[in-house]
């Protein structure tokens, strides 16, 4: 009896040590991704404060439920799934109106508008792209409605694949593709408006 108890406590000690080692590694791996997590959070939420809250909540939850992460799978996607779920739970998107403005113009639209406004049509694309400002881009991105912006940020800024974005947002891959397509168009429309003014001159 005594021998068994000793063996048990030895096994326990080993288990506890292994557990602690796995947890420490998980926490370190997760923290190493925090810049990337923040970058996505910053642009799916509407302010820096919101983004900071969201990232803190995400890490608090991740550290609590680290055991549900399967080692060897995509930790960055796992963290962002927590983050986007928290963001949805906060109910922010309910306040947003859906984007109902028509978008019949094609993908060359922004270039055409900028080139037209830049001069004689002989411009090269470097001069045209120079018309855009960093603030203009940040502002235009924040004007994209949430459903589209989430996908845009995950794929075009976070470098997630369509499939990862679909898993993170829990929507079909076809939805990711159509929202991405539309999100990029909306971004261009917003860029055209902020760079050239609202007038259709």
């Amino acid at each position: 009896m005594a021998g068994m108890a000793e063996e048990d406590s030895g096994g326990n000690a080993l288990r506890i040590a292994t557990n602690a080692r796995d947890r420490v590694r998980f926490e370190e791996d997760a923290l190493a991704l925090s810049d990337q997590v923040y970058r996505v959070a910053r642009h799916i939420s509407d302010s820096r404060e919101e983004a900071e809250d969201l990232v803190q909540e995400t890490y608090a939850r991740a550290f609590r439920s680290w055991r549900s992460f399967t080692p060897g799978t995509n930790l960055r996607a796992w963290l962002l799934r927590i983050l986007t779920n928290l963001n949805i739970d906060r109910g922010r998107r309910k306040q947003r109106r859906p984007d109902t403005q028509p978008l019949e113009e094609g993908d060359y639209f922004l270039y055409n508008r900028l080139e037209e406004a830049t001069g004689d049509g002989s411009n090269d694309e470097e001069r045209v792209v120079e018309r855009l400002s960093q603030d203009g881009i940040v502002g235009a991105l924040s004007a994209v409605p949430h459903d589209f912006r989430d996908v845009l940020v995950l794929v075009d800024i976070g470098d997630f694949s369509y499939q990862d974005a679909a898993n993170i947002l829990d929507v079909p891959i076809g939805t990711v593709m159509s929202r991405l397509h539309r999100g990029r168009r909306i971004l261009k429309r917003e860029l055209a408006e902020s760079t050239l003014g609202d007038g259709d001159d």
Binding site: R42, H43, Q134, I137, V138, L141
Partner: peptide
């Protein structure tokens, strides 16, 4: 450019 502009 978008990628760079938003990398805060």
């Amino acid at each position: 450019y978008v990628r760079v502009a938003v990398s805060e």
